[in-house]
Design a protein around this nucleic acid. Structure first.
Lengths: 104, 104
DNA sequence: CCACTGTATGATTGTATGCTCATACAGCAA
DNA sequence: TTGCTGTATGAGCATACAATCATACAGTGG
């Protein structure tokens, strides 16, 4: 199996999960502390921590320490671009299905 | 949990898998028959069939029947755009790590 | 030192995923 | 009809994932 293909799947998998998408959306406006992130997305601290670690080790999040607090931020704006493209697929799909519904 | 967030994760999950990425790449130039796809990506017929079905029910592949043969095609060019963005993340990550290596 | 806050991690559980093998099914041809 | 080709699917298995709870760890302040 092609290494590059596996690496691409890894990056995409790191985005393809609801909790992680919520994190990414919350980080859209810039760096945030863990203690801000998990209440904002309404997930447990431990669960949030694991997702953050996962995305950081995949290279899509940056991590910065400041005393007790840990700040995470998006490293690549492409991640937001990917979510945009997904949204536009969804929009087309939904309108396509509406079309079908009208026919039926 | 937000419905839209789950839907976005679903679409991304449908792409975030090596075998499915190979299929998508193979369909880049247009519609192909199953009997062309599975030898091209070097996977079993049954496995390929499942992945094709999965992507079709997610709405990212179109399916057309012609006699015995079934043809699949990409429905949204955004899918290729997503793969492009992932590639550019990977390129930046790899060069970043090379940079680190040079420092160390 | 101790207590406290913020973050990470071990253990566990239930569920989902990807693959393989065998088999079923659909459509054509003899 | 029978046989053949192309595709889909059921069963089983091994592995991966996400979530939770409890606990550990790091850093600060008293």
């Amino acid at each position: 199996m092609n290494e590059l293909t596996i690496a691409r799947a890894e990056i995409l998998k790191a985005i393809a999960q609801p909790t992680r998408i919520k994190i990414i959306e919350f980080l859209r406006d810039g760096e945030r502390c863990v203690c801000e992130i998990f209440p904002a997305i309404a997930e447990e601290q431990s669960n949030t921590s694991r997702h953050l670690k996962m995305m950081q080790s995949c290279g899509i999040l940056a991590r910065r320490k400041e005393g007790l607090k840990i700040f995470y931020a998006l490293k690549h704006s492409e991640v937001l671009g990917i979510l945009e493209l997904v949204l536009s697929i969804l929009k087309k799909e939904i309108s396509g299905r509406n079309g079908l519904l009208q026919v039926v």
